[in-house]
């Protein structure tokens, strides 16, 4: 699994008309907000699952920023991604409280059993694994976040079951 490449603005993939329309609609909704850039990026990623390169020049123009400034913000924050994720999101907490309850073994298990590494997507495109640093569930560690929902007291067996369900589910993230 390769680490994801740096975001590129020079090779903006020409989005489909619907993608660009979505981006423009989000920009229009947020452009008058003070400090609009993060809400805009979140808005686009919420709808498209990632921030297509083609969004950068449009955001830059709407906010009177340089493309470099937009790219700088986009690449600073761990949440934003410039390529589509898998259909489902699995985030494994690797902060101290979860380490005290064995999250490192879960990471190894995900790698060995499911071929999942941090920042990587399963070969069938169903699950993207990301690390996360604290979900505020530290009394019921170890914890994961699956498609936005916290699960506590996680074991390798539970992970196997949930991943099986995610792989079988054809729906999920945009």
């Amino acid at each position: 699994m390769e680490p994801r490449p740096p975001a590129s603005t020079s090779q903006a993939t020409p989005g489909t008309r619907e993608t660009l329309a979505t981006i423009d609609a989000v920009i229009e909704t947020h452009r008058s907000l003070p400090g609009a850039l993060l809400p805009m990026l979140h808005g686009i990623q919420d709808r498209l699952g990632h921030i297509p390169g083609g969004a950068v020049p449009r955001i830059a123009e709407a906010l009177n920023l340089s493309q470099a400034e937009v790219h700088g913000v986009l690449s600073f924050y761990h949440d934003f991604r410039n390529e589509p994720p898998g259909r489902h999101s699995l985030r494994l907490c690797r902060a101290e409280a979860c380490q005290a309850m064995g999250c490192d073994a879960l990471e190894t298990h995900l790698h060995q059993r499911h071929g999942l590494s941090f920042h990587g997507t399963s070969t069938d495109g169903s699950v993207t694994l990301e690390p996360v640093y604290c979900l505020g569930n530290c009394a019921l560690a170890p914890s994961v976040l699956i498609d936005g929902e916290v699960r506590g007291r996680v074991t390798a067996e539970k992970l196997d079951r949930w991943i099986g369900e995610l792989k079988a589910d054809r729906g999920g993230n945009p």
Binding site: G35, A36, L37, H78, Y133
Partner: peptide, 25 residues
Amino acid sequence: IRRGAGAYICGEETAMLESLEGKRG
């Protein structure tokens, strides 16, 4: 309400202000 974006440093108050203003934290 403003949503952060997964940067621990934005818990530092001045980095948080930068983030609220729409910049790198």
